[in-house]
Amino acid sequence: MARLGVERDAQSRNSLEGIQVLRAAAALLVVLLHTLAAARTANARLTIPDWLAQFGAIGVDIFFVISGFIMFRVSFPAGRPALAPASFLRKRLTRIYPVYWFVMALMLELWSLGLLPLAHLNAEMIDAENQRMLIRSIFLLPTNYFVMAIAWTLVYEMYFYFIFGATLYFSNPLVSLLGASATIMILYAAHGWVPDPALSDFLRNPIAIEFCFGLLMGYLAMRWPRLAFAAKPLWIPAAALLAIAAFAQPYASAIHPPSLSRVLQWGVPSFLLVASFLSMKSDSGPLRRQMILLGDASYAIYLTHPIAMIYYAKLLQGNVSSLPQWPIVPLIIVLSAGFGVVIHVVVERRLMSGVRGLFGGRIASSLARPPLSPEIAQELESTVPDR
């Protein structure tokens, strides 16, 4: 029995380390997407095929599948009671909002000082007549205007958290899987009957279904623990499906493919990729450590990389656009990731510690030992019963 417990603990760490590596890859893909988009918009010297220009968009889909899996996993820990709805939502709110508000305040401050080009921020939202839109943007409610354009994905995260959190009232994994999935799909189907235009547009996008893919994976992994090892080769069909999708989808609609095509083209391969990374074994190599660090910082990288994109776009308005962009694009990606890591270490970790300490959060000391990173330990904190 003790040996089984050790094996489960090892599998737990390995699976989360694999997820952290995939988080890092997803964050870098999004940065790649926006860097290439900025270069193409400015007609810079960067000749790239459409499939490469659009490929980074899958980073968001990977994030959504990972989110569904992690939320299921931490809410139904093996051998412990299911997480209470209030506890789940408290942990999610304190995870999302503090860093988001910090980065939003930073961008607004830079804009007010004239250090960010006005055209790249939605000035209408600062107008007193648009306070409703501003409030929606601050609290990540469905809206057609955001202070930070990338916040649209966080609105879907919050939407998923509240739906899934409500199902935890029943303390039943199958009920949560089916209940959350059915609710998301019913609301998607009913978007035409919603009177609020912003909410209707929000529900019209089926991308939230990808959270359900993650929930399904979490349920299957819980019922069949060895599934992670059996799923290891799934990256092969995932790569094949991505290759087909890349050539089948025109660039003009690549960022936001219509209807359910995104869920099929990028959501399904993301599901397979996440499954294949669950069995990644612990490794102390320097590349693995760096990828785990980037995975830890993936949220900060996602939030802060638009700042680098804004300055890159501004540089492209000058003579930089006439220079070959192949050496510049990797530099922009490295600088974006580096800035995100700095914000993660200097700001995000301290905010998380302070806010969760304020609300009585705690991290089990047994989960804080190597090879777990601080980010993994924070996720595993949710497995500690605190009803």
Score class of each variant (00 low, 15 high):
residue 384 V to G: 08
residue 387 R to N: 14
residue 84 A to D: 14
residue 221 A to F: 08
residue 276 S to G: 08
residue 8 R to N: 13
residue 223 R to V: 10
residue 144 N to I: 10
residue 133 M to T: 13
residue 37 A to Q: 15
residue 320 V to W: 14
residue 12 S to P: 02
residue 233 P to M: 00
residue 56 G to Q: 00
residue 100 Y to K: 01
residue 312 Y to S: 02
residue 317 Q to T: 11
residue 253 S to F: 08
residue 75 S to M: 05
residue 94 T to N: 13
residue 275 A to I: 04
residue 212 C to Y: 05
residue 67 S to F: 06
residue 268 V to D: 03
residue 240 A to W: 04
residue 69 F to K: 04
residue 153 T to L: 03
residue 79 G to N: 01
residue 254 A to R: 00
residue 351 L to K: 07
residue 377 A to K: 05
residue 338 G to H: 04
residue 223 R to F: 06
residue 177 L to R: 00
residue 80 R to F: 08
residue 375 E to P: 01
residue 208 A to K: 10
residue 280 M to Y: 13
residue 140 L to H: 11
residue 276 S to D: 06
residue 248 A to N: 05
residue 98 P to E: 06
residue 277 F to S: 11
residue 369 R to T: 14
residue 149 A to G: 11
residue 80 R to N: 09
residue 334 V to D: 06
residue 173 P to I: 09
residue 259 S to C: 05
residue 51 W to L: 13
residue 103 V to R: 00
residue 81 P to R: 02
residue 319 N to V: 11
residue 221 A to C: 14
residue 164 F to Q: 06
residue 292 I to Y: 02
residue 253 S to N: 13
residue 379 E to L: 13
residue 202 F to G: 07
residue 137 S to V: 08
residue 293 L to H: 04
residue 22 L to H: 00
residue 104 M to G: 06
residue 60 V to W: 03
residue 348 E to Q: 05
residue 5 G to L: 13
residue 153 T to E: 02
residue 95 R to W: 05
residue 30 V to Q: 00
residue 365 S to M: 12
residue 325 Q to C: 09
residue 211 F to C: 01
residue 1 M to N: 11
residue 250 P to I: 10
residue 196 D to G: 09
